[in-house]
Design a protein around this nucleic acid. Structure first.
Lengths: 361, 361
DNA sequence: TATGCGTGCTTAAACGTTTAATCAGAGACT
DNA sequence: AGTCTCTGATTAAACGTTTAAGCACGCATA
């Protein structure tokens, strides 16, 4: 059913009121010239008949479907729920529907997914590109959410600044030797975060970067990262560029009997769902997805409307804005002052209850 | 743009070939009577002109949009990526698009979300209902994914049997006192899993159930669950009904210096993204989302087509099938034989490297 | 009194399909 | 030779909306 339940369309209203369908259309849209009284009567009749406009017919006539596409690099990404939720919310507030498309790994699938969305006539799309992908001009307005340093980016969190916040936090706690942990050296987002971290830590802090993909290429997926050794080598803080890696670090260290945070500190990014409930709760940096989504959708809609007006105004991506949305440092229990003595004691303390309470800055 | 780029429609092809538009339609759909040679010519011309059918126009004419709705209880659910990915994949293989809708918590929003999808003219919808929600007849085919014991369920994992597998696994390791951990006592899925666990553990095992929502109602969100005390009280295994809770248990126990798995075992459900990479890697029970999605989509499409044929055939949900898809136990490092002695030693051992390797059964 | 204009509505076309109904022609049968 | 049937196409309507163009009327202006 293109339009739900009843056979209630504009003609039905028009017939019931003895006017023409065009008048009903004008009355409901407020576009043509219709007397106020008639407008009221049309409205009343419409709701009486339970009229629901056929978006399909409207789409056919206007060339606008009122649907946006959401293309994700890998739907299995734990950040996906946050993104999808924020985008869906922003879009539906603006009166748009959201069609999803999964890139499922490779770039070919990403292109294919974009093609499917185009066939369905989306008015525009929000793309969270795969690592290092550059989105070509695909013939409809596109908002790219990646990182400000990516060319073509429309709006995103200020990952660099978020990293800097975390760096400053760690240095203020007294850490002087920090291991930065990323997964892929080809991710713009991760590189920005790491760049910010280094800047925030400043010149007096010794730091090293570990790329998990490289380690796994040698030792296999899910292999131990050897963080206990790193701790023994004097690293007092482990700053991962994602909470997933932070969690991996946390559990590996705990398992090795190294107490967090009293021996070493662990921090992450993204405030993923488990971050507040693990013990110790993870210190992390959070993106303001709601704002990012609002900006992305707003930019997209602006471009869609301009496209209609000027016809061939700006062809490609919505690059006008390139907003960077601040990130928020959330300090929880997994970071603290570094262990006072030399090499950390490898036996964890055994508290009856971990400390509770959460501090947000 | 309802149909992408060029002004290439059926009339264009028809004009180029000197035939009527109807013939082009018939040729491409293979429905009417068209000579094989002409069919070939039409095909050739179509691809030459880069013809892409307007799904909007087709939808208007046929009353089918080719779009399915996906309604989720809470998009922030960590299981969501798996579900969305599987549904999107199954739907797009069947030639359907997927429109998402977030219930965002309360039931009112769920109804509202369903309404939005109906307005957009979805042909059917897949609903993963909120806890305890009963989906009313909403006037379009619906496939419900919940649990076999939910009335109206269409297809789902066999949560009970999955719980039983886990129970048998734990009992075979020698556990005789097990704490079952769920979040909400009102979740059908969780109750089924717990029922299965109890059955699998059998009558000789003492077990107790902890509902996290209840604990948090008293002590606040993210509070410690007091599992160390439970361990001291003789529980040797903690079987959570979700990997999120399992992770919470794991870190809380580790933090308290209780080694997993040599002191106590921890297990979860769903094989969420972090489960293989934490240390120790989590033993869990996995749903076959791909199969579930395939069955749900297949049932839905069948209902959509029947609706077209018989008109008022089966009005409500797609309850005909109620398939239950087996779950798969994945044994990793977080479960093992219970500690031999009496009260567990509260100091964790300090291995250089956690054991690696993964066993699947 | 004729001209002009603003108002409130109608008519009609259009968007791109699908599909029922129709029709011309050819070959086969009686 | 006339009728029937089958084939391969065409014509036209329909889906429900939007919107440009047109029309009739009343009122003010010249």
């Amino acid at each position: 059913m293109a339009s739900p339940r009843p056979g209630s369309n504009m003609s039905a209203i028009a017939a019931a009121l003895g006017v023409s369908a065009a008048t009903v259309s004008n009355a409901l849209s407020g576009k043509g010239r219709v007397s106020p009284e008639l407008i009221e009567k049309v409205r009343a009749k419409a709701s009486e008949l339970g009229y629901v406009p056929s978006l399909t017919a409207r789409a056919l006539r206007t060339g606008r479907t009122g649907v946006l596409g959401l293309v994700l690099p890998d739907i299995a990404n734990p950040l996906f729920p946050q993104i999808a939720q924020a985008i869906e919310n922003a879009a539906s507030n603006a009166g748009y529907g959201v069609l999803i498309a999964d890139s499922r790994g490779d770039i070919a699938k990403q292109t294919e997914a974009i093609g499917r969305l185009l066939e369905r006539g989306v008015d525009g799309m929000v793309i969270v590109p795969r690592r290092g992908t550059r989105i070509a001009d695909i013939g409809c307005p596109v908002a790219v959410i990646d990182t400000p340093s990516t060319p073509g980016n429309t709006v995103s969190a200020d990952h660099w600044e978020g990293g800097a916040q975390m760096g400053r936090h760690l240095v203020s706690l007294g850490h002087r030797k920090v291991l930065l942990i990323g997964t892929s050296a080809f991710s713009n987002v991760q590189n920005d975060r790491i760049g910010g971290l280094k800047a925030g830590l400043g010149p007096d802090v010794e730091c090293d970067t570990m790329w998990i993909e490289k380690v796994e290429a040698v030792s296999g997926e899910g292999c131990p990262l050897g963080l206990a050794d790193k701790a023994r080598a004097g690293f007092t803080a482990f700053a991962a560029v994602s909470d997933l890696s932070a969690l991996r670090a946390l559990t590996e260290l705990q398992r090795a009997g190294i107490g967090v945070p009293e021996m070493v500190s662990v921090a992450g990014f993204d405030d993923l769902i488990w971050s507040p409930v693990v013990t110790p709760a993870l210190t992390t940096v959070r993106m303001d997805m709601a704002t990012i989504a609002d900006l992305a959708i707003a930019a997209l809609i602006r471009a869609i409307e301009e496209e209609g007006d000027e016809e061939e105004a700006l062809a490609g991506n919505v690059t006008s804005e390139t907003d960077r949305v601040p990130m928020q440092l959330i300090v929880r229990q997994s970071t603290g002052a570094p262990h006072a003595g030399g090499a950390p004691n490898l036996h964890a303390r055994t508290p009856n209850k971990p400390t509770a309470g959460e501090v947000t800055s």
